[in-house]
C-alpha cells in the first residue's frame, strides 16, 4: 500500500515523483511566476469587487425604494455562474488579464453586495434616532454609524468572497491567459504531466489557506470586536 503511494500508478503520480516535480517547479521559478500571476489577478479583481460592492451595498441597504427594485435584479444575476460569462468576457475584453479579472470580479461581487446590503438594512433604527437627535450630518452618520455597524458583516463577506475568488481564478486562467496556476494545470494536463497538475493543486490549497488565515485575522481588529462580544 505504502509502496503504491510512493511510486504512484498510471493515473496518479506517486509521492516521490510529486516531490521531484515540486522541487523542479520551485527551483526553475515557474511555480512562483504562476502563483504571483494568480495572486495578482485575485487581488485586483477582489479589490475591484470591494470598491464597487461595498458602497453600492451600503446605498441599497439604506434606500428601501432602490433596494426593492435592485433586489430582483441582483438575485437574477447572482445564480449565473461567473464561468458562464467567459464567452462574453473574452468577446468584450479580448485575451489577457482583463477577462480573467472580470470573472473574478463577478464571483466576489455578489456575496459582498448582498451581505453589505443586508447588514446596512438591518441597522437598528434607534441608532438613527439618536443620530437625528444629536444632529449628526449624513457624512457623520455614514462614518460613525453605517460603516462601523456593518463592518463585522462586511468582513465576514470578504472572507467568503475571497475564497470564491480564489476558487474561480483557476477556472478563469484556463481560458485566455498564459500564466497563473490555472494555466499551469491546463498546460500540464495537455502535456500529460499529472505530477505538475498535483503540484499546482497543492499550491492553490496552500495559498487559499494562507489567504483565509490573513483575512480571518482582520476579525480580531478592535473595530469589529464589539459584534462578537455583545451579550
Amino acid at each position: 500500500m505504502l509502496n503504491v503511494l510512493w511510486d504512484g500508478g498510471s493515473n496518479f503520480p506517486g509521492i516521490a515523483q510529486f516531490g521531484k516535480a515540486f522541487i523542479e517547479l520551485a527551483t526553475n521559478g515557474d511555480l512562483w511566476r504562476h502563483s504571483i500571476a494568480s495572486l495578482f489577478r485575485v487581488t485586483l479583481g477582489f479589490y475591484l469587487a470591494i470598491l464597487l460592492a461595498v458602497p453600492l451595498g451600503l446605498f441599497l441597504g439604506r434606500r428601501q425604494g432602490w433596494r426593492k427594485w435592485m433586489d430582483p435584479v441582483v438575485q437574477f444575476l447572482r445564480p449565473i455562474s461567473p464561468l458562464a460569462w467567459t464567452p462574453f468576457a473574452m468577446a468584450w475584453f479580448g485575451i489577457g488579464d482583463a477577462p480573467a479579472l472580470f470573472i473574478i470580479f463577478l464571483a466576489a461581487f455578489f456575496p459582498i453586495l448582498i451581505s453589505t446590503t443586508e447588514a446596512a438594512a438591518s441597522i437598528h433604527p434607534m441608532y438613527f434616532l439618536v443620530a437625528s437627535n444629536l444632529q449628526l450630518t449624513s457624512w457623520e452618520s455614514l462614518c460613525k454609524i453605517i460603516v462601523p455597524a456593518t463592518a463585522p458583516n462586511i468582513l465576514l463577506a470578504l472572507r467568503v468572497s475571497l475564497g470564491v475568488a480564489w476558487l474561480v481564478v483557476v477556472a478563469a486562467e484556463m481560458i485566455a491567459v498564459k500564466s497563473g496556476l490555472g494555466y499551469l494545470i491546463i498546460d500540464s494536463r495537455n502535456a500529460l504531466r499529472l505530477d505538475y497538475v498535483m503540484v499546482a493543486m497543492t499550491t492553490i490549497g496552500m495559498i487559499g489557506l494562507a489567504l483565509d488565515h490573513t483575512i480571518a485575522r482582520l476579525g480580531r481588529l478592535e473595530a469589529v470586536r464589539w459584534r462578537l462580544e455583545r451579550k
Binding site: M126, S132, I145, A149
Partner: peptide, 17 residues
C-alpha cells in the same frame, strides 16, 4: 429632532462600536 431636546432610550442606544 433638536439637539437641545434629548431622548434617553430604555437601553442599548449607545453605539457599541
Amino acid at each position: 429632532p433638536q439637539p437641545d431636546h434629548v431622548f434617553v432610550f430604555q437601553e442599548g442606544s449607545l453605539f457599541p462600536w
